[in-house]
Structures are given as C-alpha cells and as structure tokens.
C-alpha cells in the first residue's frame, strides 16, 4: 500500500542549525497494516508522517502510495488519499465552524469544491448516525461551534473526519498525547474500532510503549532519523515493554532515554 524508499530529510541545510531528520528510510506497508511508531524526542517520527502527508518536501527518495508516486505531489492533492489526526486537538478542526460544517469539509476531501451547498440534509442524517456511537452526545449538537468542544471531543471528531471518506492511509500523529489518560484511552479504542471496521492501513505515532504494543499488527521504533526496529506478526503479539527496551538498547547502542515514554 505504502512504499517509502531511500527517504532523506534535512532541515535548515547549509546553516548551523542543519539537522538530518530522516536518513535513508525504507518502509513498506501492506494493505491493512496497522503500524505503531515509537521513539524518543527528535527520532524523526513526526517528520516521517509529515513527509508522507506532504507538509515537508523531501530531499531524496520516493514515496509511492497504492501505486501512485506522491513524492512531489502537493499536500492538498495527497490529502485525497490520506486521513490525518494531529497531536494538538486544535489542529484538526476549524473552531469557528459548526460540528456539521467541519464534517462536511471532510466529507468532500479529494473532491472538487463547487458552488453547491456546503452541507445537505442527507449528510446531516449521516453525521448524526456516525456521531452517536462515539457516546459524546455530539449527534444532538450538530450546529454547535467546534471551539466549544473539549480536547477529547475534538480529537474524536477529527478522527471521524479523517475516516469519513475512506483514506488509503490513516496518519495519526500522537493524537492522544494531549488528552487526559481516560479520554486518551477512549479515543484510542475508538481508533482501533474504526481501523478494524474499515480495514484501514494506518500509521500511529505514540509515546506510550504499552499502547504501541497493544494496538496494531506491527511496531516500528525510530532513533536518530532511522528505523531501528520493525516487529510484526507473532513476535509483535508476544512483545513486552521490557523486550522492547532491551531490543532498543541492542539496536541503538544506547539506553532508552525518554522520560515521557518510560513513565507512561
């Protein structure tokens, strides 16, 4: 489904702040793969997702999604194939617009926008139906401004928006990191449900090792701009946090030093 080859990304080239953020990334995702991505700060996880999404142009390599070379495709064109949820709940929605208006924007992802009404009554019924199972009561507040929702509610809504039109690839960039533990768990379970129901090919960055192990069928760990571990199948199912830490030590030659990951 996704084939990344020889991907390099350099930030601020030619300056004192030059940073090689991704070095020679090769990654192939099969259809329906649910990959959790873990790694310390500055490992390149978010950069990798943003390169796939087209937020940053890449310096070398290629990205092919479902047979389409998207390496040089602008962000808004790739969006037709991608569902995205961001770390900051504010990022995924337009606060000044209603819940239904945000959903309607997402419902037209990948379509040419026209002078037809931005939202139809038929859609409203669909949105009500889809919001109901979230258990947040949003189905009765369709016209309420998204700015009034809590972070958890906004993330749940963004998740629904990302999957409203089935994406070829779902990109989740630490989408539960800004939420309290209970809400984070709920949003994660909703994610898992949506991914399984839609058999969506998914990349999910998380800073929580337990979640990385619990969810998905494949786990990759990044360090210093490279993928240093790629665990799948049976091996992934039997993985423990201790395993992961010791394998990280062997692969990187360092202690895993990220309080945020270790403490969670």
């Amino acid at each position: 489904m996704l084939k990344i080859q020889g991907l390099y990304k350099v930030f601020n080239p030619g300056t004192v702040n030059e940073k090689l953020a991704l070095r020679n990334i090769d990654l192939t995702l099969e259809e329906g793969d649910f990959v959790t991505v873990i790694g310390g700060n500055g490992a390149g996880k978010s950069t990798l997702l943003n390169c796939v999404a087209g937020v940053y142009p890449i310096d070398r390599g290629s990205i092919v999604l479902d047979g389409i070379d998207i390496t040089k495709m602008p962000e808004h064109k790739r969006a037709a194939f991608l569902g995205r949820v961001f770390q900051d709940p504010i990022m995924g929605t337009a606060a000044n617009m209603g819940i239904e208006e945000n959903l309607a924007l997402a419902y037209r992802r990948g379509q040419k926008r026209t002078l037809k009404w931005g939202i139809t009554n038929k859609e409203r019924a669909l949105y009500r139906e889809l919001l109901g199972p979230l258990g947040l009561g949003l189905e009765n507040r369709l016209s309420e401004k998204v700015g009034r929702l809590s972070g958890g509610q906004r993330q749940a809504l963004t998740l629904l928006m990302a999957t409203l039109k089935r994406p070829k690839l779902l990109l989740l960039d630490e989408h539960t990191a800004a939420l309290d533990p209970k809400t984070a768990q709920k949003v994660l379970e909703e994610t898992d449900k949506l991914v399984k129901e839609g058999n969506l090919t998914t990349m999910m960055i998380t800073h929580n090792m337990r979640d990385a192990i619990k969810y998905g069928n494949r786990l990759i760990m990044m360090h210093d701009g490279q993928i240093i571990l790629d665990i799948k199948g049976e091996e992934k199912k039997n993985l423990t946090v201790e395993d992961l830490l010791s394998r990280f030590g062997k692969a990187s030659g360092e202690e895993f030093a990220n309080d945020r990951v270790l403490l969670s």
Binding site: A94, L105, T114, W117, I119, M161
Partner: peptide
Amino acid sequence: WFFGTEIGCAIRATGRNPQMVRAQGVNT
C-alpha cells in the same frame, strides 16, 4: 449564499485553520 457553498465553507475554514483545510484536500 456564497459562504454557505462548498467553496465558501473552505474559505471560511482557511482563515481559522489553513493546515486543517489542506489536510481536507483544499488548496489554501
């Protein structure tokens, strides 16, 4: 009428959150 259409909605969202609008496939 115009700001209620698909294009109009995309313009309104652009002012608030261009990143999100691009993620929804609109050229900001």
